[in-house]
């Protein structure tokens, strides 16, 4: 088992706490001139996404979490599980709906996703920053309106709903920023 000393703490470091993997969001060193030093951290639970505060005595060690990110291609969903393939080893892995989480709204077959592995198994999935998806349903817009002000809801092929300008129509491809869930532009086939 690998361990980190608090001296090695920095943003992004992955540690184990009470059986769950966490990522350090923020690390603050606090110490009175004459007295006990502490590392006061904010850490994100990589299973639940919840951010909590924790204080360590400086110099203490904490177990390292075997967590790393890898690019994987999303292959298909068999109705229960999501199948991904490693880009270099071609090894296939399955992820549950809980693992995939919000990414399910954005990804479609063959997209390259950032899959976070914990002890070699998928823990969470991050979609590409930008995806191109087809609109399956949106109200017909007003002809000639190209300003985009106001907008209307549009349902995409993955089931996600985004606001699009009035001039964008059903069956068109659009580019969406998955970090904000916002329409970026029309896209070509």
């Amino acid at each position: 088992m690998a361990f980190y000393s608090t001296n090695e703490f920095k943003g992004g470091l992955k540690i184990m706490l009470d059986g769950d993997p966490y990522s350090i969001v923020e690390n603050e060193f606090v110490k009175p001139g004459k007295g006990q030093a502490f590392n006061r951290v904010r850490i994100r639970n990589l299973k639940t996404g919840r951010v909590i505060e924790k204080t360590f005595k400086s110099g203490d060690t904490v177990e390292a979490a075997d967590v790393h990110d890898t690019d994987m291609q999303y292959l298909y969903n068999d109705g229960e599980e999501w199948h991904f393939m490693h880009q270099e080893s071609f090894e296939q892995m399955t992820a549950s709906a809980a693992n995939v989480g919000e990414a399910a709204k954005w990804i479609k077959e063959n997209d390259i996703c950032k899959v976070t592995l914990w002890n070699g198994a998928p823990l969470s999935v991050e979609p590409p920053n930008f995806v191109v998806l087809r609109i399956t349903e949106t109200d017909p817009g007003v002809r000639g309106d190209t300003s985009g002000g106001g907008g209307k809801p549009a349902t995409l092929e993955t089931g996600a709903v985004v606001r699009v300008p009035l001039f964008v129509q059903t069956d068109e491809l659009i580019k969406v920023d998955t970090r904000t869930g916002e329409y970026v532009s029309r896209a070509k086939d």
């Binding site: 009175p32 006990q36 505060e53 924790k54 005595k57």
Partner: peptide
């Protein structure tokens, strides 16, 4: 309301330093 400190193994001065740095300072 200090969170994430309950399991710390500190002596008296350690706890006083914790309260000083986290709450009072």
């Amino acid at each position: 309301g200090l969170s994430g400190v309950a399991e710390l193994d500190l002596d008296r001065d350690g706890w006083l330093d914790l309260l000083l740095t986290h709450c009072l300072e």
